[in-house]
Design a protein around this nucleic acid. Structure first.
Length: 589
RNA sequence: GCCAAUGUGGCUCAGGGGUAGAGCAAUUCACUCGUAAUGAAUAGGCCGUGGGUUCGAUUCCCACCAUUGGCUCCA
């Protein structure tokens, strides 16, 4: 042990910077391992990095891990912090590093070290009695970690492979101040309160039942939401020159063999047989779309041909992956296939990108773009893949949007541009995607007659904007915390008669508003006004309409808006027709 | 699929080897009420499913199913 590398220190004051946080959390991860080793010397360490929010560390405990253990480790961490251990960094040869880990029976660390080139020096970070090889950087003293909380325990495969043993991963978060931890935990709780599964139940939007894991049921209010999204989608797509088709939900196995899905995706397809013929429920809409294309002859004059399909697809996702509407086994895809000539590729891709931008912007979503390249198990030639990737790259660079490259994550038939939206607790979900596909047109021998009178093969792209409309609804629920904008709200206004005496007026008003196109509900309960207000608030209804003596006399409503706090209510009497206009205005916004 | 936890009235949860309890919701009655919970009464449960242990299981054990948190996967 030689020197303390001052240039790699990051102090508490740097917690605001990204690197500073990373160093802080990375040291916290080491602290976690240190606590574990003090309590359970037999436990073996895997790896423990800083992540976007906090840190984790993987351990092989060799015994059944419980919440009590987690508590004990957290307490031990707090104890160690008080020791004010200084971080020391030094480097050793590979063999020394290996010997150090071997002595401590750290087999996972030994495996990692053995893969490092022989002549490389390996840096170690040491805090008191604990040292581990690590590239750093770290903070200079563990005492900066004033607040630490271990959040959860989960299984995680060693080195991320299903074939390896499963280690126990402990997730934690830490801060230089206790108040920051409190703030963070509060945020977590708020995010939890927006969970689409919880709100979906409370607001009677949808449900998942034991009888159909991953297969969502929609209640009347949820379907209003869904249908509104679909109406909006149809309006914009029609404007953009898309035509809509519908293809069967189930088709013969031979079709899936032809498309390549049978070879590449069979485990995830639901199958059945009818009259000794095998069928599969569609996991994607494209093969059906191919048959529609082939059902007649096409000319270059029809191009670009934008053919959309709102198709329900089913995918047999592994049980452990299901997550409410975000990851389901059946969902409605807002698919479209665009058939075109090579010289139309760029403008079509950019057209879809603009469309996606318009959609997401309408909901106020920020998104990130990823370009996914050729995966291992793919079909097609290198030239086709190179050309397709180059086209997507040129298109995305042409519109000047930032993007990340996701190597090897493309579809088996082509590369794709993915559009990711963040949910309320920071998880990213893929929604839109644009995929270039040279394979299906070949496999299905798609053709068009060109200017030269000869047959040519069209280029095709797949694209979705919502992706899964169901997933999009899940994200919307969390994004708005159930307070949907007026145009989406299942119930736009709730009428609250001050007492039973005004129930009749309430009924008449409800019909009047309904006829005017307002989605309205009447509270018929025999409760006090305060109670009804509270109930309407909890329903997240945009407008609460109180009606009593005055309103009945004036043919008016007293409007109370959902969004304001109790002390700053926007309450005002308004003529019924004026209120209708207001709702209409907000509905087309 | 893997690791771990959980599963008790419509919802949120307490309980615990002798066949269950609260709050909210529901229903009924009284009150007729002006901007975040009026009061009273009633009804509602095969304690996830199937086995086992036991005189007796909702409680203990095993398996399965579902859910939750992650991991792997997401064409």
């Amino acid at each position: 042990m030689k020197i303390l590398l001052n240039d790699q220190q990051v102090h508490e004051a740097d917690f605001e910077s990204k690197e500073g946080k990373k160093a802080f959390w990375h040291t916290s991860a080491h602290l976690l391992a240190q606590a574990v080793k003090r309590l359970y010397p037999e436990a073996k360490c895997g790896i423990g990095p800083a992540i976007e929010n906090g840190f984790y560390y993987d351990f092989d405990f060799g015994f059944q891990f419980s919440d009590e253990h987690l508590q004990a480790i957290e307490e031990k961490m707090k104890e160690i912090v008080k020791e004010s251990l200084i971080l020391q960094v030094y480097d050793v040869s590979k063999s020394e590093a290996y010997a150090y880990m071997e002595e401590r029976n750290e087999s996972y660390k030994m495996e990692l070290i053995s893969e490092i080139p022989d002549d490389e020096r390996i840096s170690f970070y040491k805090q008191g009695d604990y040292a581990e090889f690590c590239a750093g950087p770290h903070i200079s003293n563990v005492s900066f970690i004033k607040a630490v909380k271990l959040l959860s325990v989960a299984g995680a495969y060693w080195r991320g492979s299903e074939k390896n043993p499963m280690l126990t991963r402990i997730y934690g978060i830490s801060f230089p101040k206790a108040s920051m931890l409190e703030e963070y935990l509060k945020q977590l709780e708020e995010a939890k309160a927006r969970d689409h599964r919880k709100l979906g139940k409370e607001l009677e939007l949808f449900a998942l039942m034991e009888e159909g894991p991953g297969l969502p049921f929609y209640f009347p209010k949820g379907l209003i939401l869904k249908n509104n999204l679909i109406d909006y989608w149809r309006k914009i797509h029609s404007r953009e020159g898309y035509e809509e088709i519908s293809t069967p939900i189930m088709l013969m196995r031979t079709l899936w063999e032809k498309s390549g899905h049978w070879d590449h995706y069979r485990e995830n397809m639901y199958t059945t047989s009818v009259d000794d013929t095998d069928y599969a429920i569609k996991p994607m809409n494209c093969p059906g779309g191919m048959l529609v294309y082939k059902s007649k002859q096409h000319s270059y004059k029809e191009f670009p041909m934008r053919v959309a399909e709102l198709g329900i697809v089913h995918r047999a996702e592994k049980s452990g992956t299901l997550h409410g509407l975000m990851r389901a086994r059946s969902f409605l895809q807002d698919d479209a296939h665009i058939f075109m000539r090579e010289d139309q590729v760029m403008s079509e891709i950019q057209g879809v990108m603009r469309l996606i931008d318009e959609f997401y912007d309408r909901f106020g979503f920020k998104y990130e773009i990823e370009l996914s390249t050729r995966p291992e198990n793919s079909i097609g030639s290198d030239e086709e893949w190179d050309l397709a990737i180059a086209s997507l790259k040129a298109a995305v660079e042409g519109v000047g949007k930032p993007y990340a490259i996701n190597e090897g994550d493309g579809a088996f038939y082509g590369p794709k541009l993915d559009f990711h939206i963040r949910d309320s607790i920071g998880r990213m979900w893929q929604c839109g995607t644009i995929q270039l596909d040279f394979q299906l047109p070949q496999r299905f021998e798609l053709e068009y007659i060109g200017e030269d009178g000869e047959k040519h093969r069209p280029i095709m792209l797949h694209r979705v904007v919502f992706g899964s409309i169901d997933r999009f609804i899940g994200i919307l629920i969390e994004h708005y915390a159930g307070k949907f904008p007026v145009w989406l709200s299942p119930v736009q206004a709730k009428i609250l008669p001050v007492s039973d005496k005004y129930l009749e007026y309430g009924k008449a008003l409800a019909s009047e508003l309904r006829e005017a196109g307002v989605r309205v509900e009447l509270d018929k309960s025999d409760e006090k006004l305060g109670y009804k207000i509270r109930a309407a608030k909890m329903d997240r209804v945009p407008y609460i309409l109180v009606v009593g003596e005055k309103e009945m006399a004036n043919h008016s409503v007293s409007v109370r808006s959902r969004d304001l706090e109790p002390d700053k209510q926007e309450i005002g009497e308004m003529a019924v027709m004026k209120f209708v206009e207001r709702v209409r205005e907000e509905s087309v916004k």
